[in-house]
């Protein structure tokens, strides 16, 4: 079984760097060239190709069938809120949390402003907790918002918490846990046996995964 027409969309940053060991453990050749600014890498007989994009765009590429598989944070999948891809495996990499943070460690009292790139997750959190807030949409560098007076609170991802501390911010509460997830285009998942094979190979070795195998096709 060759993989030469299979492409995997991978989110830039932490997911990309933390995925590499798992990819190599799965005995696929790592398609990225070091020190290259290239964002597209061809597939080969022995392994799928890769498309490197912003995390927010991974699911779009997979849903539209441009990529067969994608690796993306569950935070971005929840934020996107569409059911047009299959979540086919939880990968044990790039764990982080989406948190409410501010200059004080207590929940705001009364109406407030909160800056976030996660507008849907934030809106859902506010509704569930009966909190009144206006969301200030930002694309990144959220920890700046309280410092420059844009909004006293932020909803953002936290890994180690160092960035928050450097900006004198504290976590108030965790809204959701996130980790890297392997997603598949539903049509490619069912029409291309190689897509299922790549998934099985990538999760080989994870606890309890891939024990059953499949039947003849």
């Amino acid at each position: 079984m060759g993989f030469d027409d299979i492409r995997v969309a991978i989110g830039k940053g932490r997911i990309l760097s933390q995925l590499k060991p798992r990819w190599i453990d799965a005995e696929f050749p790592w398609p990225l060239e070091s020190d290259s600014a290239k964002l597209w890498f061809a597939a080969s007989q022995s392994g799928p190709g890769a498309i490197i994009v912003r995390g927010q765009d991974v699911a779009t590429l997979v849903a539209r069938g441009v990529a067969d598989l994608g690796v993306v944070g569950t935070d971005l999948l929840v934020e996107r809120g569409l059911n047009d891809v299959l979540q086919v495996a939880d990968l044990d990499v790039a764990a982080c949390r989406v948190v409410l943070a501010g200059t004080r460690s207590t929940r705001p009292d009364g109406p407030f402003l909160v800056a976030s790139k996660y507008q849907n997750i934030t809106r859902d959190f506010l509704n569930r907790n009966h909190l009144q807030a206006d969301i200030v949409p930002m694309g990144g560098s959220l920890e700046l918002a309280p410092v420059i007076g844009l909004a006293p609170y932020i909803v953002d991802i936290v890994d180690t918490g160092v960035t928050l501390r450097q900006h004198h911010l504290v976590e108030i509460e965790t809204i959701m846990h996130s980790h890297a997830c392997l997603i598949a285009n539903p049509a490619h998942w069912r029409a291309k046996p190689e897509v299922v094979a790549i998934r099985d190979q990538l999760i080989r070795g994870l606890d309890g995964m891939n024990q059953a195998g499949g039947l003849a096709r």
């Binding site: 059911n83 299959l86 939880d90 539903p186 299922v196 024990q211 195998g213």
Partner: peptide, 23 residues
């Protein structure tokens, strides 16, 4: 589309059915 969650539920309760949940 939460296939991995479905797979986990089936594996825990009825592992012999798991092969039927893929093409």
């Amino acid at each position: 589309g939460k296939y991995s969650r479905v797979e986990q539920s089936i594996r825990e309760s009825s592992p012999e059915l798991l092969p039927l949940f893929r093409p």
